[in-house]
Design a binder for these strands. Structure first.
Lengths: 230, 230
DNA sequence: CCATTCATTTCGAGT
DNA sequence: ACTCGAAGTGAATGG
């Protein structure tokens, strides 16, 4: 890892063209050759970058260029025709340290966990439900969860972290398909998410699809007797 | 901007939980208080981060903790309940430089340009078309481009950089609405994109929606006589 | 290796 | 402030 703070200008050419006028910025060069250009503001996304695999070539400009640049960095992508060209005017700091291989990030609480929790707690979706299976396969993709209700019908659940209009559209397609299966019909739909956008709720209502807001933390610590009747 | 290279461990708690075991990493603290944790590999995305607005509090651990940590950094978000806790074991480098405000990124070549190009070159979408207007307003949002054909009907074009199933759904909603307007009907639909996913193509086919793959570079340099009959 | 889906998505425009 | 759609989306997972 090489970390340089320098006045620079940047030009990216590839999937689009993008330019950065001269200013002081942070330039990060990772071990895999990737280059990131960060400013003081913004979020975690760099202003400009080139991802691995790519190759950095530094060209010193002994007789400084007309614009006063002292170095030109040219980063070329391995496979695509993306190019990042950085012109360096003045270097304020330059540090190189090998960080080694990172042990990596461990996550908990993503959609997969939400799906598992709901499958284990049918009562969070509705009363009188029994799990048929998770990732129930159909011709157009797997339904997140399929429950059977006491009347012999079924409930298809689409699980999202944030429920928006796409989730309703997706579930609608599944329901059309599932309801053609006489072994399953009638199949109701439920959109389950930690947060449901108003527009999604409206569209779901129009189509007779239910909405369930899931309390992830609450479900984690829950031991609901109604889910354990056996 | 403060740039620290240190052995550290990280815990994020908020929308999910995530942990990083002890290792040497790059810690970036921006002027707005946001903190980024970068490793040697990966892409431009940090392993862990907390976005502005947030606040960093550094607590020195004079008598080192049981795990050998010498500092604890606690980053708390302003509005949400997100927390990032970084435990520092050893600092290898520590540089602080004010970068000032960045003049910002200038982009060229995104969807807006594609839309403009297609509006100027109707023949790229189909023969015998005349531009009615771009961003044609409807009750559920603007249609990217609306053309009139020689038969008095119309063509609604949805422009995407990458055409996927969402684009087809969106266009379908527009077509339902537009075809209720006797001044426009019949209205055909065309999905125009630089790349169209097979699933999108299939769904479009089922609904009688056309697919056009757009050659952005080719269109840029084009001067098609069939678009200039006047 | 291709295709689909998720993401602590981020980001910007428009209302 | 909120919503919606785009992104140089990136990254993981399944076929």
């Amino acid at each position: 890892m090489r970390i340089v703070v320098a006045r620079c200008s940047v030009v990216y050419t590839g999937r689009l063209d993008a330019r950065l006028a001269e200013a002081r910025r942070l330039l990060m060069i990772k071990a895999d050759g990737s280059v990131l250009v960060h400013s003081e503001g913004g979020s975690y996304k760099p202003l400009n970058w080139l991802s691995s695999p790519c190759k950095l070539v530094v060209t010193p400009l002994r007789a400084p260029a007309a614009d006063g640049a002292v170095e030109r960095w040219t980063v070329t992508a391995g496979k695509t025709d993306d190019v990042l060209e950085i012109r360096i005017y003045e270097i304020d700091s330059d540090v190189s340290i090998d960080l080694g291989v990172d042990p990596g990030l461990v996550k908990d609480g993503v959609e997969a966990h939400l799906q598992r929790l709901l499958a284990e707690h049918p009562s969070a979706v509705g009363g009188g439900l029994d799990l048929v299976r998770r990732e129930h396969p159909t011709a157009i993709g797997p339904v997140d969860i399929l429950f059977r209700d006491t009347a012999g019908g079924h409930v298809a659940v689409e699980v999202k972290r944030r429920g928006d209009i796409d989730g309703v559209e997706q579930l609608t397609r599944y329901l059309h398909l599932l309801n053609r299966d006489p072994l399953l019909a009638p199949v109701r739909g439920v959109l389950a998410a930690q947060e449901i956008k108003p527009q999604a709720r409206t569209l779901a209502g129009d189509r007779g699809i239910g909405c369930v807001v899931v309390d992830y933390v609450g479900l984690c610590g829950r031991d609901d007797p109604s889910d354990r009747l056996f």
